[in-house]
Amino acid sequence: MDSMQTPIRNRHNQNPVTIPPSPFLKKLGYGTGVAVYKLERSPVANKIQSPWAIKKLLKRNIINTQYGKRLKEEASILRKLDHPNIVGFRAFVKASDNQDCLAMEQCNNSLGDMIEQRNELSLLAYPAKNIMRVALDISEALNYLHTQALFLHCDVKSYNILVKDNFSICKLCDFGVTLPITVHGEINRDKAGKDAEYIGTRLWMAPEILKYPQIITTKADIYSYGLVLWEMLALCPPCVDSYDESMCLTNDLEDLDDSITSESEETIEKMNKSGFGKRPELPAQDFDDSYKYVLEIFHCCTEENPANRPSAQDLTISIPEMNKVLGFD
């Protein structure tokens, strides 16, 4: 066996798998403090095995215990989750360089990358049918999290949604900053700790999260979910007009993707004076009748008052009926 590879077994303790060092893996993208790679697995008994996505800390963050702890916590949570619209856990192991690696189901693209690419091609909003597919699949994922797993995702955004093929199925990923919740949809302080905070990405944060003290409920995920639908209409991150160049609006996804904890005090002060936490305006495009429910869901989910937003369960009930009316079945 190559000394540069570490053999592991998947969650079902089946065929051993080796993880080569990062330079030998195809990089898929970045998250907060991590890089995600594609691992092609060797055929077994003449059967092709599906590739895995491998999440590892960026080199500069290896000594950062916060990021390492977050990756371990994500692995622990993902191992417990089982839903078709949540990325599948595969393994959590040490690589040959002694780095922790989270192995997951590999999907084609992140929605955030797809939105960037569509924008670069100077295209208009995604077709309503595509947006409604994302709306349905991610509402199903959130409903499972909020009512069965009892977790708040805390970082719903386009870059944490994976899309297979041509929107055949969409999956929620990145569970590194989740919080436990009660059956009533509020943060579970007994499990999370009295000082626990909502740590997500400021561009997608609900208004009640941007204030002190934070009001942490499942309705914060719903607000962020509504902004994802807006992204598919506007083809850019929400509140991006409130950024200036000093607030890291660059082509580097890793900068744009930084969490609230990594922002400077000066940046946070600028953001608080801008349009963050406010429903963004719709893009200057004439939307035909096929978009009527997309716009309705967006507006309902981004109500300033959390009590006026639907629950994920509400969405899983209403969206299939909307799709029937639109003929999107």
Rank of each mutant, 00 (worst) to 15 (best):
R189C: 02
E74K: 03
K38M: 09
C301M: 04
L210M: 04
L81V: 08
I222M: 15
E197W: 07
L233H: 01
Q313P: 07
K55I: 03
Y126V: 02
W230T: 00
D286F: 14
P213H: 05
P84N: 05
V134G: 04
R202H: 10
K211E: 07
L102C: 00
D165M: 06
I268G: 01
E281P: 00
E265N: 13
R11K: 15
A220N: 08
E74F: 05
W52K: 00
V156F: 12
L162W: 01
P213S: 01
H12M: 07
L295G: 14
L145F: 09
S50V: 10
E265S: 12
C101E: 07
P213E: 02
S224R: 07
F167T: 04
M271K: 12
A234F: 01
Y37Q: 02
I260W: 00
L81T: 03
I54L: 11
C248G: 06
A234K: 00
I54G: 03
V163C: 03
L121I: 06
V228I: 07
T182S: 15
S262Q: 11
Q5C: 14
L58Q: 15
K72W: 03
S96D: 11
A192Q: 04
N64E: 08
D190A: 15
Y37W: 04
N166P: 05
R133P: 02
V228K: 10
S246I: 07
P51N: 09
L235F: 11
P21T: 07
M4T: 06
C236R: 14
K69M: 07
D241F: 03
E40F: 06
Y37F: 13
T302A: 13
I319T: 01
A75Y: 04
E304F: 09
E73A: 11
G88Y: 05
E197H: 13
Q66H: 13
Q214H: 02
S311W: 09
G176C: 11
G33S: 12
E304T: 08
I181C: 12
E186N: 15
W204R: 09
G68K: 05
